[in-house]
Each structure stands twice: as structure tokens, then as C-alpha cells.
Design a protein around this nucleic acid. Structure first.
Length: 693
DNA sequence: TTTAGGG
DNA sequence: CCCTAAA
């Protein structure tokens, strides 16, 4: 009887708790993300396209006179030519873009595409941001305006497309997680629950035992404090967790997300699992060209920034557009900033430099020049690596100057209430995650993606002559074309990111992102974490970045978009290299991965049950999957939670932790302290009592 | 390795 | 988060 009752309660509680939890996740806006994106892009694109078109026409018409003509762009003198050129490029890019998208077999392209298709169009309402931006561009200065319109508009469309594509890819990875995490979880729970329930009914006690041996033996009675309900919920949760999620990790529900395994940087050595995997995949290739590329990039000083956009691609658009004008300025500034900020990471930076995000221009265009002469012969066969290619041809040397890389888009959703600082962080993390996951470099020639790494430049038709305008490089998240890597669910954690990447990401991302101000951004990363959470999913998001993931698996391959794990199978050479270098610097401090509310809840639950002196057990119970959370971390977190709970809300920083949780923290802390006190004094309780009195 | 605390 | 002394 009793048991039954209990079970029923548990069930309820479980459901309730579950529900309760879910809500939180949403907080970050799972569902929103997709919607928002959709809206913004569609609109923007249209608007810009139109503008571009108009501008183009005007220009063409006025070309001869050049003029100023009426448009409001008197200043336009800028040169129609440029404009046109750009446009063309854009068009090409756009085309390429399409191709790319389609091409990327590795990723779930089809899926992506579809996504894109759906999402983009939808975005319509504009996001203020976009509109504003758009208006800005237009309004700002007549000059700028004209230029902006012409160039930018065209560019934007192109860029956007590209970004969109990439982004979409990413989004897929991420979004599924984030988005679905809720639903997913729910489903999982639903499915699981029955089983659990059944079991419970039969005999709850056993269930417990099975589930948590530890719990069973809990010495002091669990905190439980007041409401049985509360307890029940706890148990319920646990059960669910242990049962469904935890145990099922990869297989079933996936909710758990594998990322943990991979991700966490714990291993840190830089390579982190994900990266490791990634590296394996691509390192080889990358390596060769890698150094070179870096240098080149370094020279340029340019940084490409991945964009992320929340609602819209606004940011992208901005980013994209700005490039020409602002880039320089910004560029320097950034550098300075970055340097100062990331001194520590210098080393990494160096490596990663190439990647830096800078403005995300999405385009990679670079100017290539032939440096040498080169004999026409060149080696035809041989090299494989894209980068190498450039080098390679011993005979013919094609010099490439890469001004910017096309960077994959990132989706970030953040609550409006989030601080700019958090936004920056988020973006950074996301970027890191992606980078960390591994990037691969794509070579575009005349808008087409050159997939065959074994082709020589000549074979690919990349001649010195056309290099300039026709060659492009893109940084892509690893799609993880290779299942293997994927399998481990990557965690996506955004954070995971490998060290190498971090440097870059950090630098640029922060700036760009913050500037753009995506207000909301909760990144998907964040979302992912939540879902995972309890178990400890690892992903904390990171970085949220980034993070991301579990759903993906289910849905797609799981590419987990998570930044962290992005996994990539392919691998960009760059990353690996960095990693390798990085490892040496073990000293690096681990990346910061703030605990998500979900994680806090998991921690609280675990501590309520296990007490404050068994961090190892707490880790096992609630964060077994979160490789990046060590028992020391949990202990520290608890410490901070206790502190947080004791200070005024105004003094608290970071993502606000629900008061309810804080209250529980205090209650648990008090309870367990008491228990400890009782146990400690070898003196019997009596003594205690006496003392107290 | 895990705890427990200080930094 | 890191670092460490103790256990």
C-alpha cells in the first residue's frame, strides 16, 4: 500500500517536476529560435535584393554619367564598377552557395536545405533589428548609403545566402537539440515513464535500489524536509533520469546526448574528445597547408567573424555589409582589444588566427595573385590538400591572399534580459564550440565547391589568372560527414571547444557579437545544455555555446551543432594544428562554463539526496555525462550557490537562479550541515544537545 | 583519488 | 576555476 502510494506520488511528482523543468528550458526560448530566424532572413533578403536590384539598375543607367543622379546617392561616385563587380560576386556566391549547400553531403544537407527553405521564408516580420539596420545602412550617409545599398545589398543577399546555408547547417545541428530538447525530453519521458511507472508500482523500493544504489544507502535520511511532495519529485526525477536518460545515453532517447563523452574538454588537452575525433579525420590533410594558411591570414590581419544571429540574420547582414568599410577600422580596434584581452591565449591565437571571425563576412573572397610565375606545367597531380594545393604546385605558384573566410553562421538566442556581457559570452562560446569542433576549409572556385582534394590546382582549373576573383575559401563547421564521429554524439557543447579555437573565437566573437547586439540570443547552446542537463549532460552549453545537441542525433545525425563538438569530421586542418600546439600549454585555464539552471537543479537534487560531502557521488549521479564537470567543480558550484542564496538578488550575477532552487540549496545545506555535525562529534548527540543548550 | 578549503 | 593539503 504504502509503496503504491508512493509510486503514484512519484509518478506525479515526476511528471510535475518534469514539466516544471521543461518550462525552464523554454525560457531560453527553444521554440523561438527557429521562428525568429525564419522571419528575419526572408525579409531582409527580399528588401535587400530589391534595393540591390534597384541600385544596380540605377547605377547601370547612370554609369556613363555616373552619377549621381537622383538617387539619393549622389555620392555614389564610388564607383559603379565596384558595385557591379561585387554584385556579380555575390551572385556567384549565391550560386555557389546553393551548390555548397546541396553538396555538403556530409552534413545532412538535405535536411539543412529544407530547413533553410522553411525557415528563411518565414522570417518575415522584421525584426526591428533588421529593419533598423537596413534603414541604417540606407540612411546613414548618403554615401555610405549608396554604397551600402549597392554593395551591401547585393553582398548581403549573397552573403546571407551563404551564411544562411552554413548557418542552416549549424542550425540543424543545434536547433534540433535546442528546439527539441524540450519536446524530446518530454517524449522520452513519456515513453520512459510508463516503464518506470510500471516498475515502481510493482515495487518502488526495488526500483530505488536499482536505480540508485547510493541513494538507498543514504545514511541520513534524505533531506526531504518538508514536503513529501518535494521528495517525491526528487525521487521521481532521479528515477527518470537514471532510468531513461542516463542509462540510455546513446541508444535510446539520445536525450542524454553523447556529447558528454566527447565533449568536455576535460580532457582538455586541448583536443577534447570531439576534437580528437575530428582531428583524426582531418588533421592529416589540414596540417600541411595549415601553417601556411595561417601565415597568410596573419598577414592579412583579417579576421572573419562567424556571425551568429539571433533573430535574424541581422547581425549577419550587418556584419556582412560592413566589411568593406568598417573592416579596416574595426579591424584594428579589434586586434588591439583582442590582444590585450587574450594575451594568455596568444599562442593559441596565433594558430587560430586565421580563423578569427572578424567580421563575418561571409564571403571569403580573397584576392589571389599569382605570385610567381609559375610555369604552366605545374604539377598536375599530386597534392591533395586544398591549401597545399596552393603551395604545391611547385612549378606554378599561385599566391593567394585570403582576406576573409566565409564563416558558418551561428544561431544564438538569448533572453532579452540577458546582459550584453552574457551575450558576448554566449557568442564566444558558440564560436569556440564551432571552432573547437573543428572547421574544415572549403575551396570555392567560380562559385563551385572544389571537393576533390586530390586535384591539383591546375586540374581544378584554378589558374593564376582567375584566382583572384574566382577562388574562395570557406570555413565550415564540420558536418561530420563521417558517421563515426557523429556517433558520439558530440556534445555539442559549445564550450568544449578546443582550446585552439578558443582563442580566436573569443577574440572576435565577442566583439562582433556584442556590437551587433543581438539582444536575444540564447544560443542554442544554452538550450542544449538545459535539455541535457540533468544528467549531467554535459554540454553545458556553452558555450554555449554552442552547444548543442542531442536532438540532433535523433533527428539527423546528430551533428550536434554544438559548437563544441561540432565535430567535424572533416576537419579543418587549422584546428588540429592548433590543438596540437595547444596541448603543450596545458596550463591553460579551462574554459568557463557557467552552470545552467538545469545543471543547478540537477546539482541541487543530487545534493539533497546525497549530501554535501559526497561530491564524487553527486558527480556520478547527476553529472556523469558531463565530463567537464568534475566533482570539484560541483563542490565549488555548491559553494557558490550557498553563497548566492545568502546574498541579495541584486548582488547576484550571471544567469539568475530561481529562488526556489536557492531556497532548496539553503535548506539542503542546512540539513546536511546538521547531519554532519551530528555525525562528527564523536560525542553523542547528547553532548551536542548539552552544548547547544 | 577524493575531500575540503583557500585563493 | 585553480591549487593544495590531507586523507
Amino acid at each position: 500500500m504504502v509503496f503504491q502510494k508512493r509510486s503514484s506520488l512519484e509518478m506525479e511528482s515526476g511528471g510535475g517536476s518534469h514539466v516544471a523543468e521543461m518550462p525552464r528550458v523554454p525560457k531560453s526560448a527553444r521554440g523561438k529560435r527557429s521562428i525568429r530566424k525564419k522571419e528575419s532572413q526572408g525579409q531582409v533578403m527580399c528588401a535587400f535584393d530589391l534595393l540591390a536590384t534597384v541600385a544596380g539598375k540605377l547605377l547601370d543607367a547612370g554609369e556613363g554619367s555616373l552619377g549621381n543622379t537622383s538617387c539619393g546617392a549622389p555620392v555614389l561616385d564610388s564607383s559603379p564598377k565596384n558595385i557591379r563587380v561585387k554584385k556579380e560576386q555575390c551572385d556567384e556566391e549565391a550560386k555557389h552557395f546553393k551548390n555548397e549547400v546541396m553538396d555538403q553531403d556530409s552534413c545532412n544537407e538535405s535536411a539543412l536545405v529544407s530547413h533553410i527553405a522553411f525557415q528563411r521564408p518565414v522570417n518575415q516580420h522584421g525584426r526591428k533589428g533588421e529593419d533598423l539596420e537596413g534603414s541604417h545602412a540606407m540612411n546613414e550617409d548618403p554615401k555610405a548609403k549608396s554604397e551600402a545599398l549597392d554593395k551591401e545589398s547585393s553582398v548581403i543577399s549573397c552573403t546571407k545566402a551563404e551564411l544562411g546555408c552554413n548557418f542552416a547547417a549549424i542550425a540543424d545541428r543545434w536547433s534540433p537539440e535546442s528546439v527539441e530538447s524540450g519536446a524530446f525530453t518530454g517524449d522520452a519521458v513519456a515513453n520512459v515513464m510508463p516503464m518506470t511507472t510500471t516498475g515502481l508500482h510493482k515495487n518502488a523500493p526495488d526500483m530505488y535500489n536499482l536505480l540508485d544504489p547510493m541513494d538507498v544507502d543514504v545514511k541520513p535520511p534524505p533531506l526531504v524536509s518538508s514536503d513529501s511532495t518535494g521528495e517525491m519529485s526528487l525521487y521521481g526525477n532521479k528515477i527518470r533520469r537514471s532510468t531513461s536518460f542516463p542509462r540510455v545515453p546513446k541508444g535510446g532517447v539520445g536525450f542524454t546526448v553523447d556529447r558528454d563523452e566527447e565533449d568536455d574538454d576535460d580532457k582538455s588537452s586541448g583536443c577534447t574528445h570531439p576534437s580528437t575525433a575530428t582531428n583524426r579525420g582531418f588533421r592529416p590533410n589540414c596540417t600541411a597547408g595549415h601553417s601556411r594558411v595561417k601565415k597568410l591570414l596573419a598577414c592579412k590581419h583579417r579576421k572573419v567573424a562567424p556571425a551568429r544571429m539571433h533573430k535574424g540574420d541581422l547581425s549577419y547582414s550587418d556584419v556582412d555589409r560592413k566589411p568593406s568599410f568598417r573592416n579596416k577600422k574595426m579591424y584594428y580596434t579589434r586586434q588591439r582589444t583582442q590582444r590585450s584581452t587574450f594575451k594568455r591565449r596568444k599562442m593559441f591565437d596565433r594558430h587560430s588566427a586565421q580563423v578569427s571571425e572578424g567580421y563575418a563576412k561571409a564571403n571569403t573572397k580573397f584576392a589571389a595573385r599569382d605570385s610567381h610565375t609559375v610555369s604552366s606545367e605545374a604539377n598536375k597531380g599530386t597534392d591533395s590538400m586544398a591549401f597545399q594545393k596552393s603551395h604545391e604546385s611547385s612549378d606554378c605558384h599561385v599566391k593567394l591572399r585570403i582576406k576573409s573566410f566565409k564563416v558558418p553562421e551561428l544561431l544564438i538566442e538569448i533572453p532579452e534580459t540577458a546582459t550584453v556581457g552574457s551575450l558576448k559570452k554566449t557568442v564566444l562560446e558558440a564560436v569556440n564550440a564551432i571552432l573547437g569542433g573543428g572547421l574544415r576549409v572549403g575551396v570555392l572556385h567560380h562559385g563551385k565547391k572544389v571537393r576533390d582534394d586530390n586535384k591539383t590546382l591546375m586540374q581544378a582549373g584554378i589558374a593564376r589568372d582567375d584566382v583572384l576573383d574566382n577562388l574562395g575559401f570557406s570555413l565550415e563547421p564540420n558536418c561530420a560527414p563521417h558517421p563515426p564521429q557523429l556517433s558520439p554524439p558530440e556534445d555539442n557543447e559549445s564550450l568544449e571547444t578546443v582550446d585552439t579555437t578558443e582563442p580566436l573565437a573569443r577574440i572576435a566573437p565577442a566583439d562582433s557579437s556584442s556590437k551587433h547586439g543581438e539582444v536575444d540570443a540564447s544560443q542554442e547552446l544554452a538550450l542544449a545544455p538545459l535539455s541535457a542537463n540533468y544528467q549531467g549532460n554535459d554540454h553545458d552549453f556553452v558555450h554555449s555555446p554552442g552547444g548543442m545537441s542531442s536532438p540532433d542525433k535523433a533527428s539527423t545525425n546528430s551533428r550536434a551543432i554544438v559548437p563544441v563538438t561540432p565535430a567535424d569530421s572533416n576537419a579543418g586542418a587549422i584546428v588540429p594544428a592548433n590543438k596540437g600546439k595547444r596541448s603543450p600549454e596545458q596550463g591553460q585555464r579551462r574554459i568557463r562554463r557557467p552552470f545552467s539552471v538545469a545543471e543547478v537543479e540537477a546539482l541541487v537534487l543530487a545534493v539533497e539526496k546525497l549530501g554535501t560531502g559526497r561530491w564524487r557521488d553527486v558527480k556520478l549521479r547527476a553529472f556523469d555525462n558531463a565530463k567537464h564537470r568534475t566533482y570539484v567543480d560541483l563542490k565549488d558550484k555548491w559553494k557558490t550557490l550557498v553563497h548566492t542564496a545568502s546574498i541579495s538578488p541584486q548582488q547576484r550575477r550571471g544567469e539568475p537562479v530561481p529562488q526556489e532552487l536557492l531556497d532548496r540549496v539553503l535548506a539542503a545545506q542546512a540539513y546536511w550541515s546538521q547531519q554532519q555535525a551530528k555525525l562528527q562529534p564523536k560525542t553523542p548527540p547528547l553532548a551536542e544537545a548539552l552544548l547547544l543548550t
